[in-house]
Simulated assay, not measured.
Amino acid sequence: MFDRVMTVMQDDLVLLALPAFFAALGVELLWGKKQFRPVYESQDFWASMRIMVLTVFVDLLPKLGGIFLMFLCYDLSPLKDTVSRTIPWWIVLFFLDDLTYYLFHRANHEVRWMWAGHSSHHNSQYYNLGTALRQGVGERVAKYLFWCPLALLGFDPVMIVTMMSISLIYQYWLHTEAIDRMPKWYEFIFNTPSHHRVHHGSNTRYLDRNHAAVLIIWDRLLGTFSEELVSEPVRYGLTQNITSQRVLDVAFGEYGNMSRDVKRAARWQDKLAYLFKAPGWSHDGPDKRSNTLRQEAGLD
């Protein structure tokens, strides 16, 4: 079992893609200078790079444990002799992986303790390929559990982790303002920079929208889609932006906010609500959850 797990750990396509990521980042930087656009800010960029390095180390044990659980689920699956590494099964896995990512990503925005681990990917007020590398640090702890059901369905963990990597590589290019719109048919089916700019917006209209990985159809079908409007430019960052670029504040600051809210509540029901309800819920103040804000603004 250990040998199988380590083999999957070593074959990480995302790490192999890093040189291409940084090459694209350099091209975007030159584009921003040519367009006289403040695409990058020095302190913000280096905060993103420090978060990237931190994520690599934090991810090691959860990934190791997650892949181990995947193999346990796979060995228990009655379908493991049915599913094979053939093209039809890869296609099925693509859709299942993409839906799994949508559900995981949506949960990161709608469950407070998960948002605390994901918020570092959103707390930059700049939108660029460096921000793409500013991953959610704490979210790594629970991430791989979401994909274990695919192993129970008979998919080899090697296939699952490979598909997860392909999905993350696709998502990298979404974090740019250098691409305005793709063709209409592509925008309708696939996630694009325009759709993902919305996802990083703090505008009430854009909050907690467009959770897709590759296919935007999940958002369209499940009611979480929003178009990027020319009349309403995206404001990047959080509804209450952080002011520090210290790596611990960027990576774990929201855990502190959540902890203070939990301590503030007297009833255990409210304490649990601060962990499991969406960000913005309060037991003694206005409801600032995104769905509530949209309803009050007449956007839903």
Rank of each mutant, 00 (worst) to 15 (best):
Y170I: 07
K277Q: 11
Y74K: 00
V214I: 15
D300C: 07
P193F: 09
L207M: 15
Q10N: 14
A212K: 02
D75P: 09
D3F: 14
L79T: 02
L30E: 07
L168W: 03
S84I: 03
S119C: 07
T204G: 09
R246N: 14
S259Y: 12
S119N: 08
S42T: 13
P193R: 00
R205W: 08
R112N: 15
M164Q: 12
Y236W: 04
M114W: 11
G253H: 10
M164D: 10
L275F: 07
L30H: 05
W173M: 13
Q269Y: 09
L293C: 10
V234S: 06
L145W: 05
A251D: 08
P38L: 07
H105T: 03
R112H: 13
S244R: 01
R197T: 07
S194V: 03
H211P: 00
Y206N: 14
G65E: 06
T82F: 10
S290D: 11
W31A: 09
S48N: 13
D208M: 06
D12S: 07
V161I: 15
L96H: 08
A265K: 03
F22W: 13
L153A: 15
Q35Y: 04
V8K: 00
M1E: 13
G298L: 11
L215F: 12
V141Y: 13
S259H: 07
H105D: 07
G256H: 08
N191Y: 00
P193E: 08
K63Y: 02
G285D: 11
H118S: 06
R294F: 09
D156N: 12
P286F: 01
I91N: 03
S244L: 09
L174M: 11
R264K: 10
N210C: 05
I67K: 00
W218F: 14
Y101C: 00
D75K: 00
W185S: 12
R260F: 12
T176E: 09
W113I: 12
Q171D: 03
A265F: 02
F95L: 13
K34I: 15
Q135W: 09
I166E: 02
F71A: 02
L299S: 05
D11P: 01
L153W: 10
D44H: 08
L275I: 04
D12F: 01
A213E: 09
V214N: 12
Q269I: 05
P19D: 04
S244C: 14
A278S: 13
Q269C: 01
D12W: 01
R134A: 14
G237C: 04
D208A: 02
W46N: 11
D300Y: 07
S77Y: 04
M49H: 02
Q295F: 03
G130C: 12
N108K: 03
L16I: 06
I160A: 01
L64F: 15
L275K: 00
I67H: 05
A132Y: 10
W147G: 02
P62L: 01
G117Y: 02
M258V: 13
V161T: 12
F71K: 01
H121S: 06
Y126K: 08
C73R: 00
R205E: 15
L207R: 04
R264P: 02
F94T: 14
E110C: 06
L152T: 05
V161Y: 04
V39F: 02
T131L: 14
L79A: 13
Y206D: 14
R260V: 13
G285S: 06
Y172Q: 12
